[in-house]
Amino acid sequence: MEQRDGGRARMKDTRLPAVADAANLTAALRKAGALDAGAVREVKVLHERDTVVSHITRLGLRYVGESAGSPQSLILKTPHAAFAKPLANAGRHEVAYYTQLAPRTPALLVPRCFDGNFDEESLAWHLLLEDLTDSHEIATQWPLPPSRAQAMAIVAALARWHAAWWDHAGLGETVGVWASTDDTAGHMETFASHYDRFADQLGDRLSEERRTLYRRFIDRSDRMSLRYHSHRHLTITHGDAHIWNFLLPRAGVSDTVRIFDFDLWDINVPTHDLAYMMALQWYPERRQAFERLLLNHYHDTLMAHGVSGYTRGALDQDYRRSVLWHITKPVWQWSINIPPVIWWNNLERVMMAVEDLGCEEILG
């Protein structure tokens, strides 16, 4: 469909939301300092796909006038139609990260955001992000684990990102919100309700030994939360730090790893992300082969980027505690109708890690 804008013809793909038409993209790029005198003339869908909870569209742009240095393509992220309302808070949260925190994050750790908005009335949201398709790629096709070199690069990027917010003065003030003891108790009450239904539905597929572990964990959740409520050696955590949320430079490209998908970021114990990546996602042989190596590399990178007073022993203690916390993740995933192929395998893997690392003894 052809439209007229100031005497110039511009093309609009009828599949695109209004936020991605030529006029809106021109305004967004100018506001972000990515476009000077030129204007977007044509917008084309290069590729689009659904993730579990969002819709990703790769946009190709053509300009009229001066556009040197302006992006030739963008990533438009919008809600997945099936989860737009139930997971609206995830969109709100991710927009907040990219518009408020990303500008304060060291360069080349996350994709650049050119525009983002969450509409509280309609619950519609969008993000216009830097397109790294030509320079970066994810490590593997899901669910394959990474190579050693890929895992080392990913963990180093995570450590650099954690270090940037480590015990930051703004935590709980201008960066995120501290959960009170009442908040964490209420969160666990909600979890316990979900768990009861989860266990009922699984029946004998959830063993009595695992049921006992869950009951003990729920009963001792106040004790488990003390580490968080210390407000010491905490940082911004990703919340969904599997390896497929990291973009690695393609072969022959000299660049850094980028972290993306920030709908679950929060203030938390840093090992929450490491345990999610390894204990929840990797089967024992791979996890055991890499776990110590990656924890050492993570700690070394933290120290090299200004973190102090956090010992290697403290990292081990936090990691084991975080692995135990992640027995809750499959239940939360089940509660929002994430497919069983995800939460069932996560359940099996994390339970094997709990046993392997002796995490149950933390409960006393």
Rank of each mutant, 00 (worst) to 15 (best):
82 A>G: 15
86 P>T: 01
87 L>F: 10
87 L>V: 04
88 A>F: 06
89 N>C: 09
91 G>H: 03
91 G>M: 01
91 G>A: 00
91 G>K: 03
92 R>E: 10
92 R>S: 06
93 H>N: 15
93 H>E: 10
94 E>H: 05
94 E>C: 03
94 E>W: 01
97 Y>A: 01
98 Y>C: 04
100 Q>M: 12
103 P>D: 01
104 R>S: 14
105 T>N: 11
106 P>A: 05
107 A>M: 02
107 A>Q: 07
108 L>R: 14
109 L>M: 15
110 V>A: 06
112 R>F: 08
115 D>V: 02
115 D>P: 00
117 N>S: 09
119 D>A: 10
119 D>P: 08
121 E>I: 01
122 S>L: 03
123 L>V: 08
123 L>Q: 14
124 A>R: 09
126 H>S: 14
127 L>K: 05
129 L>P: 03
133 T>Q: 14
134 D>E: 13
134 D>C: 08
135 S>A: 10
136 H>E: 12
137 E>R: 14
137 E>D: 13
138 I>H: 04
139 A>I: 02
139 A>T: 11
139 A>F: 00
140 T>M: 14
142 W>L: 14
142 W>T: 10
147 S>F: 10
148 R>M: 04
149 A>T: 11
149 A>D: 08
149 A>R: 13
150 Q>G: 06
151 A>F: 03
151 A>L: 06
151 A>D: 05
152 M>V: 15
153 A>T: 11
153 A>D: 04
154 I>H: 00
155 V>D: 02
155 V>M: 09
159 A>Q: 08
160 R>E: 05
162 H>G: 07
162 H>Y: 07
163 A>G: 00
164 A>C: 00
164 A>W: 07
165 W>E: 10
166 W>E: 05
166 W>M: 11
168 H>V: 09
168 H>S: 08
168 H>M: 04
168 H>P: 01
169 A>E: 12
170 G>S: 03
172 G>I: 03
172 G>H: 04
175 V>D: 04
175 V>E: 07
175 V>F: 13
178 W>M: 09
179 A>W: 12
180 S>I: 13
180 S>G: 13
180 S>N: 04
181 T>D: 11
184 T>A: 09
186 G>Y: 02
186 G>T: 05
187 H>D: 12
188 M>N: 14
189 E>L: 11
189 E>P: 00
190 T>P: 00
190 T>Y: 08
192 A>V: 06
193 S>V: 11
193 S>Y: 10
195 Y>H: 15
197 R>Y: 15
197 R>M: 15
197 R>H: 15
198 F>Q: 02
198 F>I: 13
200 D>M: 11
201 Q>S: 13
201 Q>N: 13
202 L>N: 04
202 L>Y: 03
204 D>W: 11
207 S>N: 02
207 S>I: 00
208 E>G: 02
209 E>V: 13
209 E>W: 09
